[in-house]
Amino acid sequence: SHCAGCKEEIKHGQSLLALDKQWHVSCFKCQTCSVILTGEYISKDGVPYCESDYHAQF
């Protein structure tokens, strides 16, 4: 499978399933500020955001 963030193949190591896609753990980050999302996040149109950036933009 391929990472939804960087589009590279996910080989051995940690990956996560979010928004119905596979991601490298380090690629699942806020679209705006690039903080790596480990806990709470909000998505809009399949794109992840941290809570503060989501509320600031939408």
Rank of each mutant, 00 (worst) to 15 (best):
P48Q: 12
E51L: 09
G13W: 06
Y41E: 04
F58L: 09
D20H: 13
A4T: 15
K29A: 04
Y49C: 04
C6M: 02
S52D: 15
A56E: 12
E8G: 12
I36P: 06
W23R: 03
T32F: 02
I10V: 12
H24C: 07
V47I: 13
D20L: 05
G13M: 09
G39F: 04
W23N: 04
G46K: 05
C3S: 01
Q31K: 15
D53K: 06
C50G: 01
E40Y: 15
L16V: 12
K7T: 14
S1A: 04
A56N: 14
G46A: 08
E51T: 06
C6N: 01
V25D: 08
V47E: 06
W23F: 12
G5Y: 14
I10H: 02
C30M: 00
S34H: 14
I42T: 13
I10F: 08
G46S: 05
I42M: 14
S1K: 14
A18D: 07
S43F: 06
C3N: 01
E40G: 07
G5L: 08
G5V: 09
V35N: 15
H2E: 06
I36L: 13
Q22I: 13
C50F: 02
E51C: 07
D53V: 02
D45S: 07
H2Q: 09
G46E: 02
H24E: 03
L16S: 10
L16C: 06
L19P: 03
G46M: 05
E8Y: 09
Q57Y: 09
T38G: 10
Q14I: 02
K44T: 09
F58R: 07
A56Q: 12
K44W: 04
K29M: 03
Y41W: 12
E40D: 13
H2D: 08
C3D: 00
L17D: 14
K11T: 12
L19W: 05
K29Q: 12
K21S: 15
E9M: 14
Y54L: 05
L16D: 06
K7D: 10
H24N: 01
K44G: 07
S43D: 12
Q14M: 05
C3F: 01
S1T: 08
L17W: 07
C50N: 00
V47Y: 12
V35M: 06
S34M: 14
H24R: 01
A4W: 12
H12A: 13
S26N: 11
H12N: 13
H2S: 06
Q14D: 15
S1Y: 08
G39V: 06
Q57I: 15
L37Q: 02
S1L: 05
Y41H: 05
C50Q: 01
C30N: 00
K11N: 06
L17M: 14
P48Y: 06
K11G: 11
Q31M: 04
C50R: 00
L19K: 08
Y54W: 09
S15N: 15
H24M: 00
H55V: 11
C6W: 00
Q22V: 10
W23C: 00
G5C: 05
D53L: 01
D20E: 15
G5S: 07
C30H: 00
A56T: 09
F28S: 01
G39K: 12
D53Y: 02
S15H: 08
H24P: 00
S26Q: 15
K7N: 11
S43A: 14
V47Q: 11
S34F: 14
E51P: 12
C50L: 00
Y54H: 04
S15A: 14
A56S: 10
Y49N: 02
K11Q: 12
H24Y: 01
C30P: 01
Q22H: 14
C6Y: 00
L16Y: 13
Y54M: 04
G5A: 09
G13E: 09
G13F: 07
Y49F: 05
F58G: 15
V47A: 13
L17Q: 12
Y49A: 02
Y54A: 09
H2R: 05
K11S: 13
G13H: 10
Q22Y: 15
S34A: 13
A18H: 07
G13V: 10
H24V: 00
I42H: 10
Q14W: 00
G5Q: 06
A18F: 07
C27S: 02
Q57W: 04
I10C: 02
L37Y: 00
C6K: 02
Q14V: 03
I10E: 02
T32E: 09
Y41Q: 04
K7G: 10
I10Q: 01
H12K: 13
H55K: 12
I36W: 08
W23P: 02
F58I: 14
S34E: 13
Q31H: 13
W23I: 02
Y41K: 03
G5K: 13
H55R: 13
S52V: 11
C50A: 01
V47D: 06
F58D: 15
C3Y: 01
I42K: 15
D20N: 14
A4H: 13
G39R: 09
H2W: 03
S15F: 04
T32C: 14
P48V: 07
